[in-house]
Design a binder for these strands. Sequence first.
DNA 1: TGGGTGCGTGAATCCGTAA
DNA 2: CTTACGGATTCACGCACCC
Lengths: 358, 358
Amino acid sequence: MKLPLDTILEGDCIAHLESLPAKSVDLVFADPPYNLQLGGELLRPDNSKVDGVDDAWDHFDSFREYDDFTRRWLAAARRVLKDDGALWVIGSYHNIFRVGAALQDLGFWMLNDIVWRKSNPMPNFRGTRFTNAHETLIWCAKSAESRYTFNYDAMKALNDDLQMRSDWTIPLCTGSERLKGAEGAKVHPTQKPEMLLFRVLMATTKPGDVVVDPFFGTGTTGAVAKKLGRHFIGMERDPDYIAAAKERIAKVRPVADLSLLATPSKRTEPRVPFGTVIERGLLEPGTVLYGGEKAKWTAKVRADGTLVTADHRGSIHKVGALVQNAPACNGWTFWRMKKGDEMVPIDSLRQQIRAELH
Amino acid sequence: MKLPLDTILEGDCIAHLESLPAKSVDLVFADPPYNLQLGGELLRPDNSKVDGVDDAWDHFDSFREYDDFTRRWLAAARRVLKDDGALWVIGSYHNIFRVGAALQDLGFWMLNDIVWRKSNPMPNFRGTRFTNAHETLIWCAKSAESRYTFNYDAMKALNDDLQMRSDWTIPLCTGSERLKGAEGAKVHPTQKPEMLLFRVLMATTKPGDVVVDPFFGTGTTGAVAKKLGRHFIGMERDPDYIAAAKERIAKVRPVADLSLLATPSKRTEPRVPFGTVIERGLLEPGTVLYGGEKAKWTAKVRADGTLVTADHRGSIHKVGALVQNAPACNGWTFWRMKKGDEMVPIDSLRQQIRAELH
DNA sequence: TGGGTGCGTGAATCCGTAA
DNA sequence: CTTACGGATTCACGCACCC
């Protein structure tokens, strides 16, 4: 049987996977429903409404139901993979642990878990948790014996000649890349950035390989596959998504020169919050800092990285400005600490941390 | 029964957990073993860890054994947690997916998965995978109904007044912090950096809280707990680790001034009803308040602490929301009063009353 | 054309307490 | 148990618009 290359199969992915010949494809990339279990509506501080994912396809009645669904599509995906093939799944804390456990139970062999570190995530509007600023991908081979594809040198080249790490900083899919329908509404609630698929396909497929995406959505996998000279087979239930994906992929021109896809890092100096100095134990809470000529002002360091004086509390910059009655202040150079008989600016601690971050 | 505070219990953690009273502790921090080995023994990973696979390996049986172990200690930990308590687990892709699924099955409620992004990870020497540059922590409440502790303001302060994200860049435990034995050998193969525990305990416990660490190792949790004015209960099977931990913790000096440990938050400040402002005579009934840009709306203060406009009557919050046609409104910041030529938010009156309450 | 400002928005398990 | 209500809560970008 010939594979339906570079096409989108409409309908349930499990049936379609079962219709493909066994051991016939090189890679599976899957972005399954996350089972978010959202509550009511959520408002921003400005009272605007957050457009959450409330689509029916993301709703499951129980973990058991989600597990059943997961194991069924994973088993079907494993069957169509070549023995040396591999699979990627993306998810969030709502579902990724269940997916990961299922992978292991089915005999997949984990190679890496990858953190997609979002440079511009949505904040936590109620101040109830840490900002949920990442998603997790799992990369696994069909089995522990698979001789999987990993383009080590391409990854190193993409990363300024340093080994590519397991955490990838990539922006959300926004702006002109984001598919919009009538009245500017997003076509798909969870469209992934092409940069993410670039990296996945560049790292773990060869030109001409066949990539199956069982939850094709609006076709990011297909668009990037075409661009990179890989074949795709998409599976998707929603005809509207399929239509948008077809139109999108038709516009894609394969790139001749793959080196154009390198994304050199910005090489910006890492921001070091003053709190890190405390957390690292370079200053103890309670330490006294001195500011101004002849140590005119003093302040005490708190465990949360703020300073206190008799009258003020806040960041090193804010308190520095307040005691001087100045509009602004660079706390790193204003405040000094005792070091033996000397007074040393606390900026030396930031230098030390930056050195460790390299 | 009195809790064995600030001590280390030698032996298996499951037995010790079962010996503690139910619903008695505030937090569990766990760094469980994750290396699966034939023969049923669960060992910590060390530097000689082999990547290869034993062909006789039976995935399902081994995973099941690990799952059994995991569910037993998690269930025991859940029993000793207060209903509003929480639990942290740290792991890598070898085990964290199984742990995460078990957590959800046992009724824990996930709050965040946190990525410990290592600034100085060990490179992948063979160039076969992405550099494994992170570990994953899961923070979860005992149940979805738990009113868990999250010191939002302290986290924001630690991060230069930006919300703390779910990815934390922290160096490995090296240098003088790393416990060394005879001939400079590492005492423990996977000693965690104190900075990691600092953030965990600062974020999710209050001073005086009781923290249980069932896999205490060389006592990073205990050392940071003591420093931050929290109580710990450690559990550990290896007497050598216990000895090293005791020596280490004995040297730790707690932060003396408790006021340096807690970050004041608006949520914990005493509630001041607007009526108190009237009762105290800080505003006369009949005073006109102004809301919105350029004082778009006006309202009159009534003697009972409500406001009236032409169309509405109610609390400062309710009327503020009604005139704006908004779902909610903070009347303290929305409404302003005339003070000379200036317009001052009525929140200044609340500040005044709160100051007098001290 | 160019810089500055303002607005919209993204896979979100997003309140706590008293009556 | 539910209901009511006080009042606390946002970061990084892309784009439109304006002078």
